[in-house]
Design a protein around this nucleic acid. Structure first.
Lengths: 227, 227
DNA sequence: TTGTTTTGTAATAAAATTGTAACAGTTTTG
DNA sequence: CAAAACTGTTACAATTTTATTACAAAACAA
């Protein structure tokens, strides 16, 4: 997942929260805190998806949405409207003016993420791939199968999560602690040495006879997916 | 991101929270719980950014801020003031006494992080950048790889930290003691001659056949990254 | 429940890194 | 110039970090 997402929202707390979490998911995020700037920025940066507040200090989200959808060049950018009101009527209105989806505040981040992914899969399959490859390693997130070359590989749950996490940011080095929080989950009670063992298991699984090791050990730092 | 951040804050809960999260982000964090110590520590360690409480038991954050901003040597350290009051008036006051940003408690960590990153990007690009170059030497902090020209170079952990530290302030000369505290860490028990050996190793690694020596020895003073 | 898979840990082996000492070389100083 | 001060280089032992293995506990599926 490496799409560019633009947020137009005047509540700073929401912006930072969403920005932080989306970045962690591998998205490139930019934001504007008012309609004027937002509209300009969207035209400038041509993001893959826009997240926009319904109400904005100046130029409202509704207006921007209409403007964008009217323009041949920008009409294909998917737009998710954020709103405080949860009324069905607004939903209809939002979709009528061309918004592609609609989410009411407060929302949970996983829910937002799911909607973003769904939209991207529809509009930009290339950035929301269900099948990701790195070198000759292939991960199919739909069937949950992993291939090296064209040989299918069996992975345990943790190994799968590991490789799926690594492949989101190939070549990036992650510390054992980062891997623990991102793969095992927060406040889990596991030794950091455990990571070594699972790295070993992953290596054993994906590095077939005569292929190079795709996991790089960076001493005193951690591991990365690299070739 | 590998900036040094100093926190001056008397509420221990905030210190531990922020310290923990910033460390996880890759920052090096030190803290003081009163103004006296904080001021001294800042002058000693020369951090890349300071996070300071508005109110402190003894010497107030406001006072420290004024003192630092008055001093030519420290005036460029960006300061973020933390405060419980959320009044606009205080914001103006904070910025007037030279603080670079202002955040009200309680704050979310992502928000704090965003502000820290923004400030660092502005004031110290060399510590905020993920890929940084000096002459034809390139350090990629994400993949943790170092290149001379386009040849990748293998460095041990200390050599990597050394070059990463040098490149933050190119051409600046650091004494062996400074290098020890900044690269090895505080209260470590190592001879200062050890630095020589690691400098030697670093030189050997980055100065490829036919390239000039990027490490300058300054007699009776220390070493610097220079060309 | 029973059998299978997965998981975490501890123990040990292997590998890489580190610090030191000793000495050689170089520069400065008187 | 000679002595003193400082730096460069090397080899090696100690330490630290990572890899590997085996095994029991836990989770899961039949």
């Amino acid at each position: 997942m490496n799409a560019n997402i633009h947020i137009v929202e005047d509540e700073q707390s929401i912006v930072t929260l969403v920005e932080y979490n989306l970045s962690k998911e591998g998205f490139k995020v930019n934001s504007s805190t008012n309609g004027e700037d937002g509209f300009k920025a969207i035209k400038d940066t041509n993001p893959d998806l826009v997240l926009m507040d319904w109400m904005l200090p100046d130029l409202s989200g509704v207006e921007i949405c209409k403007l964008l959808k009217k323009n041949e060049k920008y009409k294909n950018i998917p737009i998710i409207m954020l709103t405080a009101k949860g009324e069905e009527e607004d939903k209809v209105k939002a979709l009528n003016i061309g918004a592609d989806d609609y989410i009411t505040k407060p929302f949970s981040f996983p829910e937002l993420l799911a909607r973003i992914k769904a939209l991207l899969r529809r509009s930009k399959p290339s950035v929301a791939q269900d099948v990701i490859t790195f070198d000759n390693l292939k991960i199919d997130r739909i069937t949950r199968k992993v291939y090296r070359g064209n040989k299918q590989i069996d992975l345990g749950p943790i190994e799968y999560k590991l490789i799926d996490f690594f492949i989101k940011n190939p070549k990036r080095v992650y510390s054992r602690e980062q891997l623990l929080t991102n793969v095992w989950g927060d406040n889990i009670n596991v030794t950091s040495r455990t990571v070594d063992v699972h790295i070993r298991r992953l290596r054993q699984a994906i590095n077939l006879e005569g292929t190079k090791d795709l996991i790089r050990t960076v001493r005193a730092a951690g591991y990365s997916l690299d070739n």
